[in-house]
Design a binder for these strands. Sequence first.
DNA 1: ATGACTTTGTGCATCGGTTCACAAAGGGAT
DNA 2: ATCCCTTTGTGAACCGATGCACAAAGTCAT
Lengths: 225, 225
Amino acid sequence: MKSPSQSRDRGIPEATVARLPLYLRALHGMAERGIATVSSEDLAVAAGVNSAKLRKDLSHLGSYGTRGVGYDVEYLVYQISRELGLTQDWAVAIVGVGNLGRALANYGGFVSRGFRVAALVDADPEVVGDTIAGLNVEHIDELEAVIKRRGVSIVVLATPAAAAQEVCDRVISVGVTSILNFAPVVLSVPESVDVRKVDLSIELQILAFHEQRKAGGPLMAMDSQ
Amino acid sequence: MKSPSQSRDRGIPEATVARLPLYLRALHGMAERGIATVSSEDLAVAAGVNSAKLRKDLSHLGSYGTRGVGYDVEYLVYQISRELGLTQDWAVAIVGVGNLGRALANYGGFVSRGFRVAALVDADPEVVGDTIAGLNVEHIDELEAVIKRRGVSIVVLATPAAAAQEVCDRVISVGVTSILNFAPVVLSVPESVDVRKVDLSIELQILAFHEQRKAGGPLMAMDSQ
DNA sequence: ATGACTTTGTGCATCGGTTCACAAAGGGAT
DNA sequence: ATCCCTTTGTGAACCGATGCACAAAGTCAT
């Protein structure tokens, strides 16, 4: 039984959660430029959203602004970081060290946000043993052992589509409950496991849809295929 | 036929558009396995959505199913492809040939969907002139010329954050209206330009949020699994 | 202190999207 | 043809998210 409760409501809407990292990014930029205080209007512009939405989002975390003044940049950075769980350090494993896996391993954006690439794993004997981004690539046979040994709690799947489900099952079997999937397949996982997916070709297809509409529109019979 | 305009209702909801590529992927898999006909229930499972949603989505394109039977796989592939604009070929330019740009250039998922990487562009003299994925890397000074010469209509930004807005402005100046942005910045563009963004670290942050909550939020309730 | 001014936090109307649940439409058997 | 079975397509209720608009709460100047 969950009462509305007078304290912090822990039921933060998904849509809000998805925008918090955006605010955080904008705030980091401001902190770097020495801005101490920011209004919802300015922060909204920097994050590319509208100010009412931003205020409502922040209000889900608590009442951290000062009326007539705005938000303290440092303080807000801390509050959002804490809410997102970025005040602790997360060990991430990347499985699949092809072009994409390599790019992810070298991507600076992770480290700067409390994420630490703690392991690289691949099946190809050609790359196992290589050092990428300062890390030794380990063999897929070691997958479970590596995950346990390094305390990995988030796994990034950058394998070929055909291998993704099996790797997924295996990491779940050793307790991983958060997966970021780049393979173009629908993973089937238990309820308790969180999967987010990024499909590069899907994004392009959505762009193509809109582009087509702009270029031709409904009554454009150029489609003489 | 229908009241307003006799043609297909062109107002397809965004949420539906975003799922069409998912259905398409599932259908391609089925076609390969020789499945001729599929029910909304089976297709929904394959695409990872619920069947009512799938039927409503498809109903926006038209009435392509047969009651009591299901959908013809080949026919549905064609209809969705056409709707998404994948029956034509799209020339894509990738700007920024770092780790990520390279990964994208080599990513097979594009080609297989009517997208053709038509140009690679970078600012670093070290990589300009290299051949990657069978393409010559051209200098950023040539950006506008290359885009016009190759008929590029979709640009993928894989540059450092600091360079993204300038490149964005320049490609827009030569008529590009669809941009896929991997740089962690909010691009400012005219109304008429479509930007989709993929931010790898944002996805991880969302996972971290949920992971933290699972692991025991502020007041851990410890329910007995 | 007081009043003018700024900006937050939120109640409320609205909108788009999801899900339910069922009538309508087809196939196949007799 | 008629009946039964399957599955689509969709009206309608529901649900979460968005955006407006404003009272409440603070700052600053005098």
